[in-house]
Design a protein around this nucleic acid. Structure first.
Lengths: 358, 358
DNA sequence: AGAGCATAGTAAACCGATTTAGTAGGATTC
DNA sequence: GAATCCTACTAAATCGGTTTACTATGCTCT
């Protein structure tokens, strides 16, 4: 029995899945492909084709369920209507929220997107943008990721902080964010504060820490090395916050307020505090960052600095599409700043007099 | 001043982003495109080309940084190496975890994927699979979504329960899941149990409820209508669980155990229980479902039935690729069952004697 | 009557690859 | 010395559309 030469895929792509191609449609109508194409695309060239014929064409297209092959169209037009999105990790609340904002806008505008996650592996961070460009994406959105050198499609970085040519950065006003958090703690009466910095690879870590130091200076709060911890590890689990907080506590220095790098670590931190008998917020007030969905439903509900993540995604998509459709020479924004918001909930309170740990 | 006729995108796709096409590369080498293509693709036809020339070609390709245009290749080969993924919502823990499993396997195998989220809107559920097929995807993975009628590419449904031709269903062993949860509660000594069913649109809702009823019968537990609530609303927030639980409590019927549809709603439910002065687990034991990341870091930590979501995603991707590369006539699995696991944490305990609410 | 123009299209190039069929030239075989 | 084979390629078709340039016909205008 003769085998087929190439054992190709079973579901070989037959002209965009249905069997109808422009050619077959044109033949069916007894017209040229060009005429049909003009009408289907409402091209200006269709003006010389009488309405009667146009109707005929459209009806036939509908009846035969003709759907133009997007690959062919992209190839010819040099327009793929496709964007590449690069995130550190998909299953993380942060990236997921940004992505949902991105998707909202992109799909509305008729674009689709590829997602890739690099899990902080350097070689993937380098390779994926190239692979995406090979896939003819018209632009790139990178989330919490430092883009390697140059890309030759328009790009937008959410929480990007490096000045890379061709990249628009969407960034939070970290100075304000730090002020909001510290002011809140100071207003409540806290003076001895502990801090948890982000992982070294997170693009927000440096900028935010600088902002925190500025804010601390402004409010006359001392930042002690003994009371400063840093998240370690690739994953995004409360466990990291839990571990840092344990270390922090082990050093013996007392504090009544804790400002964490994100809500996830705040959750872990609270766990660690509790295990040593400290109550939140009676003994220690905790301020998170991001305002992920579950922040409001922790026990106690998290006081946190809200980043408008969904909007940041939408702005990223919007900015990118504007850049893609704008004339090449038009200048593009280097940076777009969004504002944080303090959400006061149950994890912060005045320091109590009867705090045995203070 | 003459305007350009078509105001095309600024970053017009120049042959996969760098300026090098197969044609230019071939010219540079003084060879035919065919020869270069053979060598680049290590096609069997390259065997007649001496190693010396092959080296030359590969070196030139590397130096000029030639990257084949994936669109052109896909069009010619009728292989896009692209999959479509349909989820209800991206920013949801459930879908995000499944997606991360899907991505893992797909990218490893050289496939990219488009993601679309339909937010339970019927017209999108219908339209997206078609749009994706127009984009020449070679297969579809749908998550917690009932696929409209027929698709003409191989498809896999995660938590799909309808028997749709051409679709492989990846499902949890719900019978076992329900048994695990009920057995745990019964073993602890609970008899009066309340239940929260999933939203009507969730594809797991029906099957799981049937399984719960079976299990209840088996353990001799009565399911009272008064003690049965149902999640309502599109979004995926603890708020929904909070609201149902309030309604449940308002009916006045007492219970000591609560089995919720998912962890998210369990979190909301606990909040509602607390607000009426009930302690978890002392007064009411709560069992969640899914084991999302934050389940372990709730207070109390959630006892829950774990679904291996990431693995389900991986299995989905694996199964789909196998189907795509398999000969057309090969039979494909209609259903793949994965097993749940009971994770016992702090939200369940023996019912206390001193329960004023029981 | 012939120029000019609008109408209703068509033929063919093109996008950038892959792939089939074929060819030129030298070596080997009979 | 002709037939055959092998080597090292090339020309051209093809995928399914879009787009440019052109044509054939009929009508109007002078």
């Amino acid at each position: 029995m003769p085998r087929p030469k190439s054992k190709g895929p079973s579901g070989a792509l037959k002209s965009a899945s249905s069997g109808v191609s422009l050619k077959s449609l044109a033949e069916h109508l007894g017209l040229s492909q060009a005429a049909v194409s003009f009408v289907i695309n409402r091209s200006p060239a269709a003006k010389s084709i009488p309405h009667r014929t146009q109707e005929l064409i459209r009806t036939a297209a509908r009846e035969l369920n003709y759907r133009p092959n997007h690959l062919a169209r992209s190839l010819r037009q040099q327009r793929s209507f496709t964007i590449g999105v690069v995130v550190p990790e998909i299953s993380e609340g942060y990236a997921a929220l940004v992505m949902s904002g991105i998707e909202d806008h992109l799909l509305q505008e008729g674009y689709f997107y590829f997602v890739v996650s690099h899990r902080h592996r350097a070689e993937l961070i380098e390779e994926y943008p190239l692979l995406l460009q090979q896939r003819a994406v018209e632009g790139l959105i990178v989330v919490d990721t430092v883009l390697a050198e140059s890309v030759d499609v328009p790009s937008v970085a959410v929480s990007g902080h490096r000045d890379v040519p061709g990249v628009t950065n969407i960034v939070l006003n970290h100075a304000r964010a730090a002020c909001l958090a510290l002011q809140h703690l100071v207003d409540l009466g806290h003076r001895r504060l502990a801090f948890i910095k982000g992982q070294a690879f997170s693009s927000d870590t440096e900028v935010r820490w600088e902002a925190v130091r500025e804010a601390a200076k402004k409010f006359g709060v001392e930042i002690k090395g003994q009371l400063t911890g840093q998240l370690e590890g690739e994953s995004s689990s409360p466990l990291l916050g839990y571990q840092v907080t344990q270390k922090l506590l082990a050093r013996g220095e007392t504090f009544t307020g804790l400002f964490t790098f994100n809500d996830i670590s705040a959750i872990g931190a609270i766990q660690a505090l509790r295990e040593t008998g400290r109550r939140v917020p009676e003994d220690v007030s905790v301020v998170g960052f991001d305002d992920i969905q579950s922040a409001a439903f922790q026990n106690p509900a998290l006081t946190t600095v809200r980043q408008p993540l969904r909007e940041m995604g939408m702005i990223a998509a919007e900015t990118l599409l504007r850049r893609i459709t704008a004339p090449a020479k038009a200048p593009y924004p280097k940076e777009i700043v969004v504002e944080p918001e303090l959400i006061v909930r149950g994890s912060t309170a005045r320091p109590s007099k009867s705090n045995e740990f203070a």
